[in-house]
C-alpha cells in the first residue's frame, strides 16, 4: 500500500535525508578543511619517509595555517574554541572531536620543534647529539600526524545516525587517501628539490593508489549490505546524484589517471615533468572530490517508520 505524505514540512522525517551541516553553506569550510587535513597529514608522513624537510614544513603550514583556521571559522562561536581543548573540557573521554583537536595542537607543537631541531641538526650542528633529539621528535611527530590524518574518519564513523559513515573502514579510507595525497605532493616538491626520488615516490604511489582503489571498492561494497540507508548512500555515489563527482573526480582523476601515468614509467622510463604535473594536479582534484562525495553522501535514516512498520512493533 502506497503511503502518501500529508504534510511536506519535514521531509527528513520520512525520507533518507543527507546531512547538510558539514557540506552546505558554511559547511563547505569543513569540506575544504578536511581536504587540507588529508593533504597535510599525508605529506608529513611521506616527507618523514623521504626525509624531506621542505615537505615537512609544507605539511605543517597546511595543517596549522589552512586546516585549523578553516575549522575555527566554521564554528558558530569561534572565540569559544578554547572550550574544546583539554584541560578546559574533559570531553576527550568520549568525543573524537576533542581528541582530534588535541592531536592537532600536539602535532602543531611537536612538528614545529621537530622542524627547528631538524634544521639545526642538518645545517648548524651536523653530526652532533641533536640527531638523537631529531629522531625522537620525528617519531612523535609521525605518530601525531597519523592521528591527525585518521581522526576525521573516527569522527564520522562514530555517527550511528549516518549508516554510510558508521563503519570501521572509514578511518582507513581517510588514512590511505591521505598517504596517496602526500605522495602526490612530495612529487610536486621533487620537481624543485632534486633530493626527492621521483621514481621511489612513483613506485609508492602506484601501490598506495591501488590500495585506495581496493579500499573504496570494499567500502562501497560493504555499504550495500550494511543497511538500507547505507546502500542508498552507496548508490548515490555509484549511479545517483553524486555519480559524476565520484566517477570523474574520485575514480578517473584521483585514482585511475595518476595510476596510469605512474605506471607508464615502468615501461617508458621516468615520466616527463608535464605528465608528473598532470598526475599531481589530477590526484589533488581527486582528493577534493573524495571528501566532497563522502560528506555529501552522509544520509540520515528516516526518522519515522511507515505505518505498516510501526504496526508490527
Amino acid at each position: 500500500m502506497a503511503l502518501r505524505q500529508w504534510m511536506v514540512t519535514h521531509d527528513w522525517m520520512v525520507k533518507p535525508t543527507a546531512q547538510t551541516e558539514w557540506i552546505e553553506r558554511r559547511g563547505v569550510l569543513v569540506w575544504i578543511a578536511e581536504v587540507f587535513t588529508s593533504l597535510g597529514a599525508g605529506l608529513y608522513l611521506v616527507s618523514l619517509f623521504f626525509d624531506n624537510w621542505w615537505g615537512m614544513l609544507a605539511a605543517w603550514v597546511i595543517i596549522m595555517f589552512l586546516k585549523v583556521p578553516l575549522h575555527l571559522i566554521y564554528f558558530g562561536k569561534p572565540f569559544r574554541f578554547w572550550r574544546t581543548i583539554p584541560p578546559f573540557t574533559n570531553a576527550w573521554k568520549t568525543s573524537w572531536f576533542t581528541r582530534g583537536i588535541t592531536f592537532t595542537i600536539l602535532f602543531g607543537s611537536v612538528a614545529f620543534v621537530q622542524l627547528v631541531i631538524t634544521f639545526v641538526a642538518l645545517h648548524v650542528f651536523p653530526a652532533t647529539a641533536w640527531g638523537a633529539w631529531d629522531m625522537a621528535f620525528r617519531v612523535l611527530g609521525g605518530l601525531l600526524a597519523l592521528l591527525v590524518g585518521i581522526y576525521s574518519g573516527f569522527i564520522m564513523s562514530y555517527c550511528k545516525s549516518v549508516p554510510f559513515w558508521n563503519t570501521a573502514m572509514l578511518p582507513l579510507v581517510f588514512l590511505f587517501a591521505g598517504v596517496a595525497d602526500g605522495l602526490a605532493l612530495i612529487m610536486a616538491i621533487g620537481l624543485f628539490d632534486p633530493r626527492v626520488s621521483i621514481s621511489a615516490a612513483e613506485s609508492a604511489g602506484r601501490f598506495v593508489l591501488a590500495v585506495n582503489a581496493l579500499m573504496m571498492a570494499a567500502y562501497l561494497w560493504n555499504a550495500t549490505y550494511t543497511s538500507r540507508t547505507a546502500k542508498y548512500s552507496a548508490l548515490l555515489l555509484l549511479k545517483g546524484a553524486l555519480a559524476l563527482p565520484f566517477w570523474l573526480g574520485v575514480v578517473i582523476l584521483g585514482i585511475v589517471t595518476p595510476l596510469v601515468i605512474s605506471s607508464l614509467s615502468l615501461f617508458a622510463g621516468e615520466a616527463t615533468t608535464g605528465l608528473l604535473i598532470t598526475a599531481i594536479v589530477l590526484h589533488t582534484a581527486g582528493a577534493v572530490a573524495l571528501k566532497y562525495v563522502l560528506l555529501k553522501a552522509g544520509v540520515h535514516t528516516p526518522l519515522l517508520p511507515t505505518l505498516s512498520y510501526s504496526h508490527r512493533l
Partner: peptide, 16 residues
C-alpha cells in the same frame, strides 16, 4: 554559554 557551534551533535543525533 558553552556551545561552540560545531554542529557535530546535529549530525550524530539519530532522530534529527
Amino acid at each position: 554559554d558553552r556551545c561552540v557551534g560545531c554542529r557535530y551533535c546535529i549530525i550524530a543525533c539519530p532522530y534529527q
